[in-house]
Computed example of a mutant assay.
Amino acid sequence: MNRNLGIARYLSNADTPLPCGNGAIAFTSAHVPEEADASHRFGDLVRKLKKEAGYRVMCDIDDRTPAQFGLEDEEAFLKAFDLDWLRLDDGYTQEQLLDLVRKLPVALNASTIPESQKRDLLEANPDILFVHNFYPKEDTGLDLETFQKFSAGVPAENLVVFIPGDSELRGPLFEGLPTLEEDRNEPPYVSFARFREMGIQQVLVGDPGLFDQQREWIEQAQQGVYSIPCQLWGKQNAQLYDVPFTIRLDSPRRLRRLQESRAYGKSGNLILPDPDHGGMPRNRGDICQDNERFGRYSGEVTLINGELPARDRINTIGRVDSRYLKLLDYIPSGARIMLVREAKEAQEEEQ
């Protein structure tokens, strides 16, 4: 299954520029009420997504959709528009779903089908995708416990989820389109990292717009390097920006050790105790470096993900951007990371 970042597109935002799909999922719908009067343009949208942008298209339908398009059944609808999946929503019994999953490439609603029925459906077709809903209304998105309940029994590679966009939100509410409510006001990159930590590879942006910086960081994470927006203090520490490091596999969750960083304390690069930022209590989000008092450990950089006491052998050299602190929970040990300058869009908002 392709792991590229997916999108959602509808007739109402069909003119929004399309990023290159490279085989990722494009989610659309043939039964959104406000678009019913424009159904004749649906075929043009699917062709644009597939032929021009290179997506595989998943279309949300209910049991009435084929007839509304003058087609006999779901199979005729799938073939008429050259769709890759049908996501079957309302109006189907368990018996109908079992019949359809055996003969068609379909996806099902992960947020509404009980676990016992999911097991039966997966036995009938182990390749079924279960797609969680997105939630346009504030406060209606899933909490993590409910998400895990509805995902139980489904392999992570069979799950599809939505994260919100940021540069352009979809109407009519313009409040973001996340699966998880706590993602509604998070940077999309943070939401992506959360799902990737869960092992979920099929992540779609529900809204039409995503800032270039967010997309760049997501694409880098897909390639195995996580960017951590931060501010490093002092000219001598600027050399740590944009350098790939590895989080040591044996790092505790409260303190992420950067494996290659100890080299900065060698080769005559003396790291003195900092009179202003040395020996300080270490708080979540602090970026710290061992100074010469730590002997051969001098130079090692750590990312603090808890509350730790002051040590006169440790300098605090910077802070993770507050909007990206959750990355410290989601990025796994053994991962490659880069410390990067604070998010461009955050700096623009402050000016």
Rank of each mutant, 00 (worst) to 15 (best):
E260V: 06
Y241P: 00
M280E: 05
S261N: 13
L308T: 12
I317Y: 02
G299W: 03
G295F: 10
D290S: 03
G285T: 12
R311V: 07
D274N: 15
I331W: 03
Q259E: 15
I287Y: 04
R254P: 00
D250Q: 10
L325S: 08
L272D: 08
G285V: 13
R323D: 13
G279W: 11
Y330V: 09
N305S: 10
G306I: 12
G278L: 06
Y324A: 12
S261D: 12
P273W: 08
L255M: 05
V301R: 01
D274R: 06
Y241D: 00
M338P: 00
R248F: 06
H277C: 11
A310N: 07
G278W: 04
M280H: 02
A310S: 13
V301E: 02
S261C: 14
L303G: 00
I247W: 03
C288S: 03
R253G: 01
G268A: 11
R256T: 01
Q289F: 00
D242L: 01
Y330M: 08
N291H: 12
N315S: 10
N291W: 06
D276H: 15
Q239S: 06
I304S: 07
F245N: 01
G268S: 10
E292V: 12
R313I: 10
C288Q: 01
N291C: 05
Y330L: 07
I317F: 03
Y324M: 13
Q239Y: 04
Q239T: 12
